[in-house]
C-alpha cells in the first residue's frame, strides 16, 4: 500500500501501512472488500432493488434489540411472563426495545415478501440466479420460524395456545410429523422444557442459520451480479434494434421472393444473428 499525497510519512503512518499490508497479505481483506464494493452494477438499477438490503438491515435491528431483551428475559415458565412485564414497565426504554423487536419482526416479514415479489416479477431467479432464489426461500422459511418461536417466549395465553395448536398441527403431519413435534415440545407434552427449547431455537439456532444463509445469499449475489431491470434503457434499445432488424429481414425476403427492386437509399442489411433474449 502506498499513500503519496500526504508529504513525508511519520512513523505512525508507516506503522499503520505496515499493519494493513500485513493483514491483507494473510487474509485478503483488501481484495475482498474491493471485490464486494467496487464491482460494477448495471446502470438504472431500481429502488425496488433496495429491499433485500432493507431486509438485512432489519435482521440486524432484530439482533440488536434481541440482545438487549435477552439481558432481562428469563426463560423459565415461572419467571418468563414476569420478566416481560418488567421489561415493558420498569426497564428504562424497555417498552421501546420490546416494541421495536415486535414491530421489527412484522416489518421484516413484510419486506422479505416484497423483496421476493420483486425478484419474482423481474424474473431475477432465472439463469444463473436459481441458487440465489433457493437460499432466499430458505431465508423466508427461517424468518417465519423466528416469528413462531419468538411468539411463545412472552408466555401469555394467546401465544401459548396458538403455539400449542401450531405444534399439534406439525406433529399431525405424516411420517416425520410426530418426531418434529417431539423435538419442538421437548417431549410429548408442553412443559417447562418447551420454553427453554424455543428460547434456544429462537436465540441461537435460527439466527445462526439466517446469518449463514445471508452470507451465502450475498456471495451468490456478488459473484453473479445484481440483475438488470428487464426494461432498462439499454435493454429497450437492444429490443428496438432487434425488432428493426427482423422487420428489415422480412422485407428483404419478401422483395427477393417477389423480385421487386430494393428501394434506393435503403442500405442492404446483413441478416443479423438473433440474439436470444
Amino acid at each position: 500500500m502506498t499513500t503519496k499525497d500526504i508529504g513525508p510519512k511519520g512513523p505512525v503512518v508507516k506503522t499503520g501501512e505496515a499493519v494493513v499490508d500485513y493483514v491483507d497479505d494473510r487474509s485478503g481483506v483488501k481484495t475482498g472488500a474491493r471485490w464486494f464494493l467496487f464491482r460494477n452494477i448495471p446502470k438504472g438499477t431500481s429502488w425496488f432493488q433496495t429491499l433485500g438490503f432493507t431486509a438485512m438491515a432489519l435482521f440486524g435491528l432484530q439482533a440488536i434489540t434481541g440482545i438487549v431483551l435477552a439481558m432481562y428475559y428469563k426463560p423459565d415458565t415461572n419467571t418468563a411472563f414476569r420478566s416481560i412485564e418488567y421489561i415493558t414497565d420498569e426497564v428504562t426504554w424497555g417498552w421501546l426495545v420490546r416494541g421495536m423487536h415486535k414491530w421489527g419482526a412484522s416489518a421484516m416479514i413484510v419486506v422479505v415478501f416484497l423483496h421476493m415479489g420483486r425478484v419474482f416479477i423481474w424474473g431475477a431467479y432465472k439463469y444463473p440466479r436459481e441458487l440465489t432464489w433457493v437460499t432466499g426461500a430458505v431465508l423466508l422459511f427461517m424468518t417465519m420460524f423466528m416469528g413462531l418461536t419468538g411468539y411463545l417466549l412472552v408466555w401469555d395465553q394467546k401465544a401459548y395456545w396458538a403455539t400449542v395448536v401450531a405444534v399439534n398441527i406439525t406433529a399431525s403431519a405424516p411420517i416425520l410429523g410426530p418426531y418434529v413435534g417431539d423435538i419442538l415440545r421437548a417431549g410429548p407434552e408442553f412443559g417447562p422444557n418447551t420454553l427453554s427449547r424455543f428460547y434456544s431455537i429462537h436465540m441461537l439456532v435460527i439466527p445462526g442459520g439466517i446469518a449463514t444463509f445471508i452470507g451465502l445469499h450475498l456471495y451468490f449475489i456478488t459473484r453473479l451480479g445484481i440483475s438488470e431491470p428487464p426494461w432498462s434503457k439499454r435493454r429497450l434499445r437492444i429490443e428496438r434494434d432487434e425488432e428493426d432488424a427482423r422487420r428489415r429481414a422480412a422485407r428483404e425476403r419478401q422483395s427477393l421472393a417477389g423480385r421487386t427492386v430494393v428501394p434506393a437509399g435503403e442500405p442492404a442489411v446483413p441478416a443479423r444473428a438473433e440474439v436470444a433474449e
Binding site: 416494541g99 408466555w155 401469555d156
Partner: peptide
C-alpha cells in the same frame, strides 16, 4: 419500526 413502536405500544396479555 421505531415510530410504530412508539405509537402502537406493545401490550402485555394474560400469563399462561
Amino acid at each position: 419500526v421505531i415510530t410504530l413502536a412508539i405509537v402502537a405500544r406493545v401490550e402485555i396479555g394474560e400469563p399462561v
